[in-house]
Amino acid sequence: MKKFFYALAFVAISLWFLGPLFFIFLASLTPSSEFYQWDRIFPSKLTFDHIYKLLVNLGGWRAMLSSIQVAGIAIGISFALGIPAGYAITRYKFRGKDFIKLVMLFTRSIPLVVIAVSLVTLYLRLNLADTVLGVGLAHAAMVLPFVVLITSSIFSGVFVEYEEAGMVFGLSRFGAFLRITMPLALPGLAASAIFAFIMSWNEVFAASVLAITNRTLPAHILNTAMASPDYFKFAAGTIMAVPALVFIFIIRKYLISMWGISLK
């Protein structure tokens, strides 16, 4: 009986999360002639016509590539700065360390709309407006505080004695970090990469304000698909969800191993 209730709870939770995704995918593949027929749940046939038109005719493919590039820039910059900063916060003692953590969190308490005009003015002077690099820098600034705090927590879970043992056998501080600490922290860093990717992938305000022709997919959808029929909106939801799901699926083993479970 106990196992039955566990299985029932697992099925209920799975349906709660997967049910909306299933109906979004189904609605995006429903022909326009059957979309508004409320007497049936499942269509008689499936079509990729809506997704194709959104990607090709409405410019979604270019916006998707821009989103991938922006997310890659955001992850690269935030990790290049956040990993050393998180390691320094964990391993070294210096004055004002707690204040620095508080300031990093405080940067996320300011709504982006408050500094939007100043940010656009600065981007125009630096020739970064309407560029993939400019949007990527803005997303990296949003993601960086969380990456620093997450990586510092990850590195605190790696015993410093392992690094000291490596340095006893001839490794430098950087070599011990690279060959001992980084492999042990890889599952947590993968989780940080997922968090950074999803934050950048779903962000819409900065991408809408800072870019016009090089908008990311959420900003492009907000500008085009939301004014289209409903089946285009569901097709846009499918296009938004699939890359994030694929990204999570690729690095899922690092997440699961972080929780003490191994995959074969």
Results as ranks from 00 to 15, higher is better:
residue 151 T to P: 01
residue 105 L to I: 14
residue 29 L to M: 15
residue 100 I to T: 12
residue 30 T to G: 06
residue 1 M to S: 08
residue 184 L to T: 08
residue 226 M to V: 15
residue 212 I to Y: 14
residue 243 P to Y: 07
residue 35 F to C: 01
residue 36 Y to Q: 15
residue 187 P to Y: 11
residue 140 A to W: 01
residue 215 R to V: 08
residue 35 F to M: 04
residue 14 S to E: 04
residue 39 D to I: 13
residue 179 R to W: 03
residue 123 Y to P: 02
residue 148 V to A: 04
residue 36 Y to H: 15
residue 150 I to E: 07
residue 145 P to L: 11
residue 57 N to R: 06
residue 227 A to T: 14
residue 172 S to F: 04
residue 158 V to N: 05
residue 25 F to T: 15
residue 7 A to H: 04
residue 116 A to H: 00
residue 158 V to F: 13
residue 29 L to G: 15
residue 198 I to A: 08
residue 247 F to C: 05
residue 20 P to G: 08
residue 249 F to N: 07
residue 16 W to T: 11
residue 138 A to H: 00
residue 6 Y to H: 02
residue 116 A to D: 00
residue 211 A to S: 14
residue 210 L to A: 04
residue 250 I to L: 13
residue 64 M to W: 00
residue 261 I to C: 03
residue 88 A to M: 11
residue 178 L to E: 04
residue 240 M to Y: 05
residue 170 G to T: 00
residue 262 S to Y: 09
residue 41 I to R: 13
residue 24 I to W: 12
residue 97 K to R: 14
residue 83 I to N: 06
residue 57 N to L: 10
residue 4 F to P: 00
residue 49 D to R: 15
residue 55 L to F: 05
residue 182 M to I: 13
residue 100 I to V: 12
residue 214 N to C: 02
residue 4 F to D: 06
residue 137 L to Y: 03
residue 219 A to L: 05
residue 220 H to Q: 12
residue 22 F to D: 14
residue 168 V to E: 07
residue 20 P to N: 06
residue 191 A to S: 15
residue 63 A to I: 03
residue 114 V to G: 02
residue 121 T to Y: 10
residue 84 P to R: 09
residue 224 T to C: 02
residue 68 I to E: 01
residue 186 L to Y: 09
residue 230 D to C: 03
residue 155 F to Y: 12
residue 15 L to C: 14
residue 200 S to V: 04
residue 102 L to G: 09
residue 218 P to S: 08
residue 136 G to Y: 05
residue 26 L to S: 14
residue 91 R to L: 08
residue 9 A to Q: 09
residue 54 L to W: 06
residue 29 L to D: 14
residue 33 S to I: 14
residue 60 G to A: 07
residue 117 V to H: 01
residue 215 R to I: 05
residue 209 V to Q: 01
residue 16 W to I: 11
residue 104 M to A: 05
residue 143 V to D: 02
residue 38 W to F: 14
residue 90 T to I: 08
residue 124 L to W: 06
residue 15 L to T: 09
residue 249 F to V: 09
residue 1 M to E: 07
residue 108 R to K: 11
residue 187 P to W: 12
residue 120 V to P: 01
residue 185 A to L: 06
residue 150 I to K: 03
residue 234 F to W: 06
residue 163 E to W: 01
residue 200 S to N: 02
residue 167 M to Y: 02
residue 161 E to R: 10
residue 205 F to L: 14
residue 156 S to E: 13
residue 55 L to G: 07
residue 178 L to W: 08
residue 182 M to K: 02
residue 78 S to Y: 00
residue 218 P to Y: 07
residue 174 F to D: 03
residue 79 F to W: 02
residue 124 L to I: 07
residue 140 A to V: 04
residue 100 I to M: 09
residue 87 Y to V: 13
residue 187 P to D: 07
residue 136 G to I: 08
residue 231 Y to K: 11
residue 262 S to R: 12
residue 189 L to I: 13
residue 67 S to W: 02
residue 97 K to W: 02
residue 141 A to M: 10
residue 254 Y to N: 09
